[in-house]
Amino acid sequence: MDSVLSQIISVTFLVTFIRSVTPLLLTGLGGLFSERSGVVNIALDGLIIFGALAGAVVTQVTEPRLGALAPWLGWVTGALVAGFIAWIHAVLSIKYRADQVISGTAINLLASGVPSVILAALYGTSTESPKVNNPLPLWGVGDLKFSPPVYFAALMVPVAWYVLYRTPYGLRLRATGEQPGAAASMGVNVQRMRYSAVILSGLLGGTAGVFMSIGNLSAYTRNMSAGMGFIALAALIFGQWKPLGVLGATLLFGFLQALSLTLDGRDILPSSLVTVLPYLITILVLVFTGRSAAPKALGKPYGDH
């Protein structure tokens, strides 16, 4: 048991931990914007997948010409593609007043089909893209080296807090999620606020995907999100729809994931059950948190088209 403890208090574990937290944090913050504006975004998981796929494919295609610049282009494209998919979700749930859970489910369904079709068309295999030679660079000192999205995620927490609580945009966004009618009467364009928030969640979710495909690994593999989007949603609820709360919740869930990765392959518990732990504890945690702090207008379409 001592060896396990010493393994947890180590640099390797810290690196694993931070790498597990990053996509959760980015996705959770994305979900934060969307849900604070009143749009349920269950499509986060799909957004991660689209971001990861676009990032990997664009990097792989532009690599010969752009070299080390390619992953950066991949990052931008991944974020934009996920933003575009989020825009579809926004159009459905804002303009056409679709049930937001259903439209999100449709996006997730799309994310489980489209990547294989694209991969099959480009590379002839439907499970993974070829490895890129230039993944995102690693920045840092000594053993603590991370790809840029990690720093980006850390930066996004104060930025999200500042935007939400200290800017007119944030005030309008929160008002839109709480009382769209009141916001509209004060001259806020509710629809436009919601569009921007959902697209923002796509950009952030896509960045999380890009981190997973060309930051953490160097290729897109099928089902690489592994329910990350849903865990991020759980973190959002557990964090009571607040940036710092989301940070705390993702730190907890990320720790559990890193723990399961570290315990995996050791003979304490069967590895198949260890991988279950993060999900199981996430559910248990959710049992003890209510939806009390949810934005009041969450999930309700506003106005007519």
Binding site: I88, V91, L92, Y96, R97, A98, D99, I102, S103, T105, A106, I107, L109, L110, S112, G113, V114, S116, V117, A120, A121, S126
Partner: peptide, 22 residues
């Protein structure tokens, strides 16, 4: 033909139905 085109098809069906009269 890739088999997953079927999943895409189903997703589109759901998308358009969710949109109602688009």
């Amino acid at each position: 033909l890739n088999r997953d085109i079927v999943t895409v098809l189903k997703a589109l069906v759901v998308l358009f139905i969710a949109a109602g009269g688009f």
